[in-house]
């Protein structure tokens, strides 16, 4: 039988890294639940925001921090800022979610349900990396290749083209080399890809 979570004192807990990087002290959260009450997607989350905060508060038990990193929540968060706006403790939860996403990516603990969302983000940034701007059509095709949702929204494209919203040729900025360097030193460097 499982003995339940075990305390580990010898590692820097996630909450401390969050405090360092964002100034958000999870210990200040007193679990009032106002963030979860106002979150537009709380009902879709595996752990609504107040529970994410509690998982981090109990960060001495690494299993709990792990649950936060593996959660669907961190990818569902829309950064709509309503939780931060209403938090009585003025905790910047959206900013904290950013750090959880970075940690989740770095530790390869991505929730399988978040695959589509991340594919979309990657497709978006790939477009920006190569052209400097978002090339909507290119991005959508890229996303479809990554996600496998080939048929979804297929009927939107002709309409968009028809009303003049869809360009077939990407706009490119002049200093695309700088953009490449910026990506190389940030996202790509962290993900260990060229």
């Amino acid at each position: 039988m499982s003995r339940g979570p075990v305390i580990q004192h010898d590692r820097q807990v996630l909450a401390e890294r969050i405090l360092e990087q964002t100034g958000v002290d999870v210990a200040r959260c007193y679990q009032c639940g106002k963030c979860s009450a106002g979150c537009p997607l709380a009902a879709d989350m595996d752990f609504p925001p107040s529970q994410i905060m509690h998982l981090l508060q109990l960060g001495d038990f690494p299993e709990f921090a792990e649950l936060a990193l593996r959660s669907h929540t961190i990818w569902l968060c829309l950064t709509c800022e309503i939780c931060y706006c209403r938090c009585p403790m003025e905790l910047d939860i959206p900013k904290l979610m950013d750090v959880l996403r970075y940690e989740s990516l770095a530790q390869k603990k991505i929730n399988p349900k978040a695959k589509d969302i991340i594919s979309f983000h990657r497709a978006f940034l790939d477009s920006v990396r190569t052209t400097g701007r978002l090339f909507e059509m290119g991005q959508v095709i890229d996303y479809k290749l990554r996600s496998g949702h080939f048929l979804q929204d297929l009927l939107q494209a002709p309409w968009m083209f028809f009303v003049g919203k869809l360009h077939l040729i990407p706009e490119r900025i002049r200093d695309r080399r700088l953009l490449k360097r910026m990506f190389a030193r940030t996202l790509k460097a962290r993900e260990g890809r060229p």
Binding site: Q31, S36, A37, P88
Partner: peptide, 27 residues
Amino acid sequence: RGRVSRIYERGGKLIVKGADTLLGARP
């Protein structure tokens, strides 16, 4: 158990948006 995030009026009713933190913080 939870703090109300928002109240708004609709059709003579007051919509109270809360969550119960004892039930998984479900809104």
